[in-house]
Structures are given as structure tokens and as C-alpha cells.
Design a protein around this nucleic acid. Structure first.
Lengths: 275, 275
DNA sequence: CAAAATACGTAACATACGATACAGCGCTCG
DNA sequence: CGAGCGCTGTATCGTATGTTACGTATTTTG
């Protein structure tokens, strides 16, 4: 049963030629407002010609463009009349195969943040924003991209941010640059990597402050860490999910940026002018 | 301060003549959809003539009727973009500073998946699981870690997965290895990178199938993409959030793994023994 | 109560919008 | 490699839509 136009589109998008598919994609991306504008606006937004738009709506089964618009409006009207139906629809209305994973991820996010106090996040953010020391980031096999993501953002708002990458021997040698005022952010989830544990231990001995992102079973690095963020990772999939850790990372990035606002604004302007 | 047109109306409805007041009342009653229809429909619904409708919108301060409609659409767009404000949910029950970002992220996830059909995901997963061709992944400044994350997983369950990294000239030269049977996964959100667009264009010309992860405003690469995944990125932070795209990526990773289950299990055992 | 001013609708007009015919192009298949 | 098909954009056309002028009705004021 197809109830909404959005479903109708995603149902037939596979059978569409390239141009109409582009129209479909822009409509889905800006659903449904682009469809309420004129054919000309819709077409330029999609980067196709107006006849293609008309062929697109014809393929959806509408006789005229206005008829298509009316359908969209009716749908919108139904949505606006009962806002409750929108909020309370998590019981997977589409019942598809992806929903379980989405539901699990949403739960993971909520659970993760429930066990995470504002104060803890504020403390970590303050530590990361402290510009007297350097910040190093590193991750494991699957989590190093998270370290990379975080480093990319932090490096913009403050100096002395380093993502440790490449060969183990290379980043291990960087230990020599680390001291008491420095922060080491480590991402490590199962199966925990020995190399990272050893690295963390040595860093700890040198007085480096360690911020650990790990799963709920806690990497052995937690022994040495000053701050531990335990994210839920269980999802109905062959792999663990790092989504919760990802969102915590984004939260911290936001907090650090806000904290450095005054300085970072100036810094960002400087960076812009360097382009 | 008057922010919405509805407020503007209730502000001035007292100074309006009878006919225009009827127009105002029917608009409020069916807000805002009546205003998006034609003047004729609006007028018959209100029981007045079309010039009265036009005088009504003129009194609200709009030069033309289309201008009035655009304003309504913009308002609707703002509402639909941030479901948090629309739903009457208690503004962060625990009142923490992190909650807004978490709430926004949860909304983004839900919205993103709402516009994503199971079929579309299944199509993409099938394409990625097709082992007759190679799979290349690349991302922009902030999204390359996502490409990296996805590549790390996909490379385990199947051969011929390559994360394009390093210098632009290096990965651009890899175009020579790409053909019709290959898939190129690109992550690109604002501000879209020219280099990626050019890369996508040439790849497209060579017949490479492009799977694009982008934001709701669609990277120009959408022109060349076979499949487009539009994720919500808006959060109350200085940065855009890639969390929605991250979860979609995890979903696809899971789907591909399930699809290749039989083969990948053997492959994973082999990998284990190589350690 | 009368006269003027305001409000409203009918009807004619112009514009801009959707629809269509046609030609060029790329792609597929023999 | 060539012929055929299908997709796409340009240019044109008809029409629905917003707009305006004007006359009538209604209310307001002296």
C-alpha cells in the first residue's frame, strides 16, 4: 500500500531515466516544498528542464502538474492537522528492514547521553579547549575515522591539534613530544587493540591526560584515562555501531568551539583569507 | 516582534473591513494551506471575491500575491526543517546544555530515514555488494573520515575496496582504473568542494556508478549520481552534523555484509588466520 | 435624512505558467 | 560499426491566473 507521494517516488525511482531521477531526488531532499513551487523553479533547482519535470509527475500517475501539487498539499494538510501522528510514529510505520537498526541507534544515543552528565562533558570540553597544551587524537581500526573527524574540526578552532596516523612506529615516536599539559584523545572499542593500550600506558606514565572514547564494556585503557566516555554500540548487525561515540564527539566539538568562540572566530577568518 | 504571518494577521485583523476579515479568518482556520492555492480557490473558500483576497494580502504588506505565497512557503519550510520546534515536546526534560544537540540529532536521524525507502537502500547495498566491479570511496574535508570508516568495513567483507586518500593528484590518477562496472561512493556536504565535483564528473563520464552522500541541499554532484542519499545536517552548533550520514553508512555496511554473508564469513575466517 | 466616502464585486486585461511539438543527442542492440 | 530507440532540452503555444478599472451597494457622517 502506497500512502504518500514520497513512498510512491522511492518505489519508482529505480525505473526512471536519469533526468527524472534527479527531479525525484531534489524533491525528496526538499520534500515537499519544492513541489509546491512553479515548474520553472522546480526545474532549475533540479538542474533539468521543465518538460522533464512534467514527464516526472506524469510518470507518477498525475494528469497535470496542478493535480500533483494538490496531492502534495493534501498530504501536507493531513500532516499539519495531526502533528501527533508525526511524533508518535516511531513504531516503524514502514516496517522495513532498516528500522530495527535505526531504532537501536536511537536507543543507543539516548542511553549513552543518559549516563553522561553535562558536567563531565563540560570538563572534557574545557580540557580540550585549554590551549596551553597540545591535543593528540588517535583511534583503532574502525574508530580512527572518528579521531580523524574530530581532529579535522578541532584543528580549525585551535592550534596544536594532531591526528596520529600512519604506521604505528611513527605515532609511537610522537610520545616524545607529549607531556603533562597535553591531552590524548583515544577511540577504542572491541576488539581492543594491544598497540593502543601500550601507547596509552606509556603516555599515561608521561603524565599525559587521556580522554577515552570506548564501548560499554570499557577498553583496558580506561585504567589510565582521566575521562572515559562509554558509548552503546549494540545494534542488530554484524558490526558494532560507533554512532553514539560519533555524536558525543560532535557534541564535544560544538562545546569546544563555543568555548573558544571569541578566539576561534578570528582564527577562522584568518583561515578563510588563506584560501 | 512579528515573526509569522499568522501573527501579522491577528495583529491587523481588527482594522480590516468585513470582507477581508472573512478572508483572514478562513486563512487562519486552514492555515497555511489555503494561502498556497490560487486566488480563485481562496476567494470561493472565503465566500468573497478575488479582488478582496488581493486587497487582503496587500494590506498585510505584500506587493503581489505570489510574494505572499512565497512567504508562507518559507515559513512552512522553516517549520518542516526543524521538527523539534514543531512538535510540542518538552524543551529538554533534563534541561542540560547538551540536550538540544542530542534532540536535534535524533530528529535528523528520523527525518533522514523517513525520506529513505528500504528499496533505495537495498538497491544501493546490492550495487555495493556486486563483486564484478571495484568500489572506490572518497569524501570531503570533514566527511572523508566517513568514507574511511565505510571503506574499513567494506574492505573486510569483499575484495577490491579502495579508499581514495592523500593528495588530489594521486586519487585523480586512479580514474584510469575506473569503468562501467565500478562504484564510486562520495561524501560531500556544504561547502561543496570543487575538486570533488570535477572528480565526480570525470568519473561519471567514464561510466562509473556514483553513490552520493550529501546534505539536504544536495551537492552539485547529485547531477552525476546514480543514487543520492540526502541527510539532515542542521544542529544547534557552529558546525553541521554528519551523524545522519554516518548512521546511513552503518546501515549500508550492515546490509552489504548480510548480503555477502556466505562469502564474507569464509573471507573473515581467512583474515583471522592471517593475523 | 441626505450626501459622501468607503467597501465590494463584475468584467476585461495582461502576464506568466504549464503544456506540447520537434529536433538533437547518446545509448543500446543487432 | 551502423541503425534504431529513447531520453532530453529548446522554442512555441494556449490557457489559467493574478491584476486592474469601474460601477454598484453599503455604511458613515454632518
Amino acid at each position: 500500500m502506497i500512502s504518500s507521494i514520497a513512498e510512491l517516488i522511492s518505489d519508482r525511482i529505480g525505473t526512471m531515466p536519469a533526468g527524472e531521477r534527479r527531479a525525484a531526488q531534489t524533491l525528496i531532499a526538499n520534500y515537499p516544498l519544492i513541489g509546491l513551487k512553479t515548474v520553472a523553479e522546480f526545474s532549475t533547482a533540479s538542474g533539468v528542464s521543465s518538460p522533464t519535470i512534467l514527464r516526472f509527475v506524469a510518470r507518477l500517475g498525475f494528469q497535470h502538474y496542478p493535480e500533483f501539487q494538490s496531492a502534495l498539499q493534501d498530504e501536507l494538510a493531513a500532516q499539519l492537522q495531526s502533528p501527533a501522528s508525526r511524533t508518535l510514529n516511531p513504531p516503524s510505520p514502514n516496517g522495513g528492514a532498516v528500522s530495527p537498526l535505526l531504532e537501536a541507534t536511537l536507543d543507543n544515543l539516548r542511553e549513552t547521553f543518559k549516563h553522561l552528565s553535562d558536567k563531565q562533558l563540560a570538563d572534557i570540553a574545557a580540557r580540550l579547549a585549554d590551549r596551553r597544551g597540545k591535543t593528540f587524537l588517535i583511534g583503532g581500526r574502525f574508530t580512527d575515522p572518528l579521531a580523524c573527524y574530530m581532529a579535522a574540526h578541532l584543528a580549525i578552532v585551535q592550534p596544536n591539534v594532531f591526528h596520529l596516523t600512519g604506521q604505528e612506529s611513527v605515532w609511537r615516536d610522537r610520545l616524545i613530544d607529549m607531556g603533562k599539559r597535553d591531552v590524548l584523545v583515544i577511540f577504542d572499542i572491541r576488539r581492543y587493540q594491544d598497540s593502543l593500550v601500550r601507547f596509552a600506558e606509556t603516555a599515561h606514565q608521561r603524565g599525559v591526560q587521556i580522554v577515552l572514547f570506548t564501548d560499554q564494556w570499557l577498553s583496558p585503557i580506561a585504567r589510565f584515562a582521566r575521562h572515559v566516555i562509554a558509548g552503546r554500540t549494540a545494534v542488530p548487525s554484524a558490526w558494532d555501531s560507533s554512532a553514539a561515540l560519533f555524536v558525543v564527539a560532535e557534541t564535544l566539538i560544538g562545546a569546544v568551539t563555543r568555548q573558544l568562540e571569541a578566539d576561534s572566530a578570528k582564527r577562522i577568518r584568518e583561515l578563510e583569507s588563506l584560501r
